[in-house]
């Protein structure tokens, strides 16, 4: 059973989003997603300063099996990327919700988070897949 922290919001495309105290939003992929992808060997993070809309392809996670597109769960400006993944992409597998985060956004409209799934609904989605 994959781990689905209740304080996060989830996109149907398996990204998670966490609203931080400073109003920024951290994005990563869920435990379910990393498990399905298998061993991650490369992460292409978005460029700093890029403005993205919800649903835009912003990043690519490559596992031993295939490349998977990562979509922005909400719109905003990319204000940080996880550079540690360049050397240790496997952190996405081992700590998908902590050190394995992908990028941070300054949301253009924080209410877009309400369009995402809560943990319970996301868990259901994963069980149905």
């Amino acid at each position: 059973m994959s781990n689905t922290p209740s304080e996060l919001k989830y996109a149907r495309s398996h990204e998670w989003a966490r609203l931080e105290e400073d109003g920024t939003v951290t994005v990563g992929i869920s435990d379910f997603a990393q498990e399905s992808l298998g061993d991650v060997v490369f992460v292409e993070v978005p460029e700093l300063g890029t403005n993205v809309a919800a649903g835009d392809e912003v990043s690519v996670v490559e596992s031993v099996k295939a490349a998977s597109d990562i979509y922005a769960p909400i719109g905003g400006e990319v204000i940080a990327v996880n550079e540690a993944l360049e050397e240790e992409p496997e952190t996405v597998n081992t700590e998908p919700y902590e050190d394995g985060w992908l990028f941070k956004l300054r949301p253009s409209d924080v209410s877009e988070l309400d369009n995402l799934l809560d943990a319970e609904d996301y868990q259901q989605l994963c069980e149905d897949e």
Binding site: G38, D39, V41, S63, V64, K65, E90
Partner: peptide, 12 residues
């Protein structure tokens, strides 16, 4: 079988 619980990387 494409992989076992060990995973592709560790199997390799």
């Amino acid at each position: 079988p494409v992989q076992y619980p060990l995973g592709v990387l560790k199997e390799h």
